[in-house]
Design a protein around this nucleic acid. Structure first.
Lengths: 160, 160
DNA sequence: TATACTCGGACACAATTAGTCCGAGTAGCG
DNA sequence: CGCTACTCGGACTAATTGTGTCCGAGTATA
């Protein structure tokens, strides 16, 4: 069970988009991170479909955050890119085999599934407690404020 | 990102193994759950490699739990079957591209990775707090104590 | 000692993820 | 007002991982 690597790209892109209010093209983000622009486009499309970013077309188009960074959680990004479904899927093993419990007795989910889903909920809650703004602040604290500032000027200027 | 379905099988097998102190063959467990015996064998091998169950060879061989059910957590099973590695892998995006932060400044992990790993830790902690014994107790409460008892007699007797 | 039953690892197949490509659409410019 | 150039969007292909199967090595039993 490995998480889609696109999640990492999407998160970094969201942090970068924090620095610019003007639309940023997918190719620019790809060059900034030195990743495949074609593939990054797919992740950005997922974010757009989920309503986290808005796409503006045309000559000077690109992507912009739709909401304030404080109101976008990591859970939102993960659900958008990696899919909203639960990681653990219960196939109702208890209803199969010679000792199958009858279906009418299965009003509550399987205890195994309950425990696994409870752990997933803890994971989701932890992800939902962190916002993109928190990440941007941490990046500032780590790499210094001049980093994001430099990126911002690089994004707005047409430099390659 | 979907968890390996074998985790579900392995957990149910561990719960069933709680009921029997004698070795249980993989084929028996497969028939009980109505799943592929060949594939279930692979999961049991993973559990054996991790030291959670012990394999007894020979004519009346099978698998037995090595420890008490109270000391086997769901995290142990998940790590054994699904792999111990983290679900989120950091590819150090920050060290790439025109604004790459130099490697010597990367003493602490990327903030993005830190947040993701913190969420994973919450998930693992929740999994580590539940034991196979807890699951068996819940199954008893749900399906009634006669269910596991019947399975136990079915396992020990040579019935097909 | 022969045998039948067990696990164990090596071998194919399928599904999901990763990555690429070209077409539809739109804002800017002449 | 039309053209151009640049953007996103979805459809297509390749690689990796998970799923499922098979047969051989080993051991307790009779």
């Amino acid at each position: 069970m490995k998480m889609s690597g696109g999640v990492e790209w999407a998160l970094h892109c969201c942090v970068v988009l924090t620095a610019s209010s003007a639309p940023v093209a997918a190719a620019k983000l790809a060059e900034l991170h030195d990743v495949s622009s074609s593939y990054l486009a797919k992740q950005l499309q997922s974010l757009a479909r989920a309503g986290l970013i808005h796409s503006v077309q045309g000559k000077s188009g690109g992507y912009v955050l739709t909401r304030a960074p404080e109101s976008i959680t990591l859970l939102d990004v993960v659900r958008a890119v990696d899919g909203p479904g639960p990681t653990f899927v219960c196939t109702e093993i208890r209803q199969r085999g010679p000792f199958a419990t009858p279906a009418d007795s299965c009003t509550t989910p399987c205890p195994v599934a309950r425990a696994m889903w409870a752990a997933e909920d803890a994971w989701r809650q932890a992800l939902g407690a962190v916002t993109i703004a928190d990440l941007a602040r941490d990046v500032d604290a780590n790499s210094g404020p001049e980093a994001l500032a430099g990126i911002q000027t690089w994004l707005t200027s047409g430099a390659s």
